[in-house]
């Protein structure tokens, strides 16, 4: 592998990591609090989950395309890609947050209230810790799929390992294609293992 290619590999891997990391952080900031609110409000729950479900069904290349002409949010480049990736990550995170909180044993929740916990205390001391493994499982699913989806972000100039893949496709160069695909796959595997380990650490009781 020529030195310049290796150098590019490092740059693109860093870009890819950044794309996924920022998207996951933003998605978690939106989805987890929203999931908590939805767990209290059964009326909004189906509607909100329906909306993110529909977003999930839009093919990723098309979603990137739709976002290009959108003013402020859209255009060419990294921020557009991040918006699309956040939208995709919302569903698994939101659904798992809601499921995690709703599946807490009713007697546990009732006794938290009966002991005189405020809504905030109940959320921080009981609901979130007990739902944490399920919430983290949602983050894990979202992260692993996003690492794959993020390769398509290269199509709208967001960089990342997709650059190698698209170039490899265009040049019919399987070596280049693999130079993009293999690091992405390894990253996904590492994220999967790491988050699985955290999940298990959180559910140890």
């Amino acid at each position: 592998m020529p030195n310049s290619l290796l150098h590019e590999l490092v740059t693109l891997t860093t870009q890819h990591f950044f794309l996924v990391g920022v998207s996951m952080l933003l998605a978690a900031i939106v989805a987890i609090p929203l999931g908590i609110i939805l767990s209290w409000r059964s009326g909004w729950r189906d509607m909100a989950l329906g909306v993110v479900n529909v977003v999930q069904t839009i093919p990723s290349l098309a979603l990137f395309g739709f976002l290009i002409p959108v003013p402020i949010l859209g255009g060419i480049g990294t921020h557009t890609a991040i918006i699309a990736l956040v939208l995709y990550a919302l569903l698994p995170m939101l659904r798992n947050t809601v499921t995690g909180i709703l599946s807490i044993d009713v007697t546990v929740r009732d006794s938290a209230t009966a002991l005189g916990m405020t809504t905030g205390e109940r959320m921080w001391l009981v609901e979130l810790p007990l739902a944490a493994p399920t919430i983290l499982a949602g983050v894990r699913i979202a992260t692993v799929t996003t690492i794959g989806t993020a390769t398509i972000a290269a199509a709208i100039g967001a960089g990342g390992l997709g650059v190698f893949i698209f170039r490899g496709l265009a040049a019919v160069d399987s070596m280049l294609l693999l130079a993009g695909a293999i690091p992405a796959a390894l990253m996904a595997l590492a994220a999967d293992r790491g988050l699985e380990w955290m999940e298990r650490a959180l559910s140890r009781h």
Binding site: D105, T107, V108, D110, S111, L115, G116, L125, H205
Partner: peptide
């Protein structure tokens, strides 16, 4: 105040309702 009231009343439920964590 429901919070104050509940903290003055002990509550024991079937299946204990202990916090598993």
């Amino acid at each position: 105040d429901p919070i104050q009231l509940r903290r003055r009343i002990g509550y024991v439920i079937h299946d204990s309702g202990l916090f598993p964590h």
